[in-house]
Design a protein around this nucleic acid. Structure first.
Length: 584
RNA sequence: GGGGCGUUAGCUCAACCUGGUUAGAGUAUCGGACUGUCGAUCCGAGGGUUGCGGGUUCGAGUCCCGUACGCCCCGCCA
């Protein structure tokens, strides 16, 4: 029996419970112990007169000792109930107590809501995870994935494992490499995703595949990025975008349902071009409005060189209404301006809307006469608001105002922690121009299909080619991404040529894959869902570290185990490699 | 690779700006008392290389430089 299950129905019954000592209260006479296991807590009571042996042992017990208690369930005396406990109406009168394991002083209390820094918690992660709020997260994660699996199994998908030791393809993220002992000088790469393998499974005719897959990318970390993370990776044959959407919506409805969250399907859809224009970001948080507004015409009327200069260079001028921000200090705005400059802008223009509807602030003077009214009307601003404006290239304008949009929403509490807003973003560009490499590169990956209507533009106007790819954005996080793939080797060759990959390059990197496409590849497409991010949203955690049992720090270290670590010369020699770093 | 913030008792913090006797508090721990507690209470005790290295100074937790680690952000993340 588990602690939390002990109820009034059990009064008078014998029970045996094992668990950890959450707390103990020794009154000299009576001793109380709160016993905790994964399910919850129940109070044990030790009476020196009725069970002197157990009482004596109870006196030796300390926090987080592991004990087994045998006794009888009893009703608590009237007035001694604890309504804050599920089991607060009963207690266990212990007749015998065994100490199974002891515990020294703890680095932090095993309870919810502790103030202890993350560094200490990670060092003692096994204690951190013993805290109910943490074990509950792992249980939620399990239930979500179990719900997704059940759903996919019902839709007749096969769960298939793909290799961890694979071939490095120097595209995308940096690979984690594994030296091959049996092939001196050669290396495997750990998978950044099972992308190529899942497409090969489609060629193999296994038309519905999924995998709860670990992905590894050796890039710098963020609160929503770990070097290893988990995706529910899915691929289907003979499908179009709508089929993938329907399948994903069905699965997510089931998975969210498995953790007690009702979501509406189908999810709304919008295009990349649309969200970039309205929110300045391809992953906008749509729990709130705060749309960016084009104010080029108003700005042009001001005659200000700030605005006119940007417009003359083919740039944009956009504005963002910040509700209630007229209380901001000059210092605050200097800080935001500094941040705008870090993001590439020359500055951040702002005006406050006064109680009388008039504008104030350093650039207010440019909005003389009707221009002030036009600006207020365009941005739908009200007294007490602030209007933030950026004039620059479209890219910079969007980047800065998207960042400000998040800041405004956060400070004004516009994003409800309880709401979960899922939106499909479609029609991403297929290519983007890499200024550094002076070449077109894939926005997603080179196997992404072009939008059928744009195929003819691949050679003539690559920047305008939309792709058959899509993201699922939840509360401002990219939580899933996928595409309809290229199954036609002719079309694949056209894409490679556009990417200026030589025949030799193609053969060396993924010749095995393009070859497979020639052997009867079905039309196929898929999606991969970032489970860590979704669970972080579901459990309202600010970082995916909180939803991963043993996460790494920003330097990709495991503070608990000490990984990564140096290895012996003998190990290196066996692998035919040597370190260029001096040993200490 | 870059910017910002932080590091003082097991834990969370104060003292730092304005250098000055013995670095304090809460909590945890340990000991004692206590027969209905549940953040138990009461009494007492122990606990510090102020991350590390260097510099300035009569004197550094405090000022300066470097460095390590943690977090947030930019770059990066097909």
């Amino acid at each position: 029996m588990m602690c939390r299950e002990v109820s009034e129905d059990d009064i008078g019954r014998p029970v045996v419970l094992s668990g950890w000592v959450a707390s103990f209260r020794d009154h000299g006479g009576l001793v109380f112990v709160d016993l905790r296991d994964r399910s919850g807590v129940v109070q044990l009571v030790f009476d020196p007169e009725r069970n002197p042996g157990a009482h004596k042992t109870a006196g030796e017990v300390r926090s987080e000792f592991v004990v087994r208690a045998a006794g009888r369930v009893a009703a608590r005396p009237p007035g001694r109930e604890n309504p804050s406990l599920q089991t607060g109406w009963v207690e266990v009168e212990v007749e015998s107590l065994d100490i199974l394991s002891t515990c020294p002083g703890l680095p932090f209390a095993i309870e919810d809501g502790i103030a202890t820094g993350e560094e200490v918690r990670l060092r003692y992660r096994y204690l951190d995870l013993r805290r109910p709020e943490m074990s509950r997260i792992l249980a939620t994660r399990h239930s979500f994935i179990a719900g997704a699996r059940d759903s996919l199994n019902r839709m007749e998908f096969l769960e298939i494992e793909t290799p961890f030791l694979g071939k490095s393809t120097p595209e995308g993220a940096r690979d984690y490499l594994v030296p091959s002992r049996t092939n001196p000088g050669m290396f495997y790469a750990l998978p950044q995703s099972p992308q190529i393998y899942k497409q090969l499974l489609m060629v193999a005719g296994l038309d519905r595949y999924y995998q709860v897959a670990r992905c590894l990318r050796d890039e710098d970390l963020r609160r929503e990025r770990q070097p290893e993370f988990t995706q529910i990776d899915i691929e289907m044959s003979f499908v179009e975008q709508d089929d993938i959407f329907l399948m994903t919506e069905t699965m997510l409805k089931d998975a969210f349902g498995a953790v007690g969250i009702e979501i509406d399907v189908p999810f709304p859809r919008t295009t990349y071009a649309d969200v970039m224009e309205r929110y300045g970001s391809d992953k906008p948080d749509l729990r709130y409005g705060l749309e960016l507004v084009d104010i080029a015409d108003v700005a042009a009327g001001t005659g200000s060189t700030i605005f006119q200069g940007a417009l003359d260079k083919g740039g944009r001028v956009k504005a963002l209404r910040a509700p209630g921000w007229s209380a901001k200090s000059r210092k605050d705005m200097d800080d935001y301006t500094e941040r705008a400059k870090e993001l590439g802008a020359k500055g951040l223009a702002w005006v406050k809307v006064g109680d009388d509807g008039g504008l104030s602030g350093p650039v207010a003077k440019f909005f003389a006469g009707e221009l002030a009214g036009a600006l207020i009307q365009k941005t739908a601003s009200e007294p007490g608001d602030m209007i933030l404006m950026v004039a620059d290239s479209g890219h910079v304008v969007n980047q800065v105002l998207a960042a400000m949009r998040s800041t405004v929403a956060e400070e004004q509490g516009l994003a409800s922690a309880d709401s979960i807003v899922l939106t499909w973003i479609t029609d991403f560009p297929l290519f983007h121009y890499d200024d550094e490499a002076k070449a077109w590169t894939s926005e997603h990956h080179p196997f992404t299909g072009p939008h059928p209507e744009d195929v003819d533009l691949i050679e003539s106007d690559p920047g305008r080619v939309r792709s058959a790819s899509y993201d699922l954005v939840i509360n401002g996080f990219e939580c899933a991404s996928g595409s309809i793939r290229i199954h036609d080797s002719e079309l694949q060759q056209r894409i490679f040529r556009r990417l200026q990959l030589s025949e030799e390059d193609i053969q060396k990197r993924f010749g095995f894959f393009t070859k497979a496409l020639t052997y009867g590849a079905p039309p196929h497409g898929g999606i991969a869902l970032g489970i860590d991010r979704i669970i972080a949203i579901v459990t309202r955690r600010p970082s995916i570290r909180d939803v991963i049992a043993f996460p790494k720090t920003q330097k990709a270290q495991d503070l608990m185990s000490g990984a990564p670590s140096r290895v012996s010369q003998a190990q290196l020699a066996e692998l035919h490699i040597e370190s260029t770093v001096d040993e200490e």
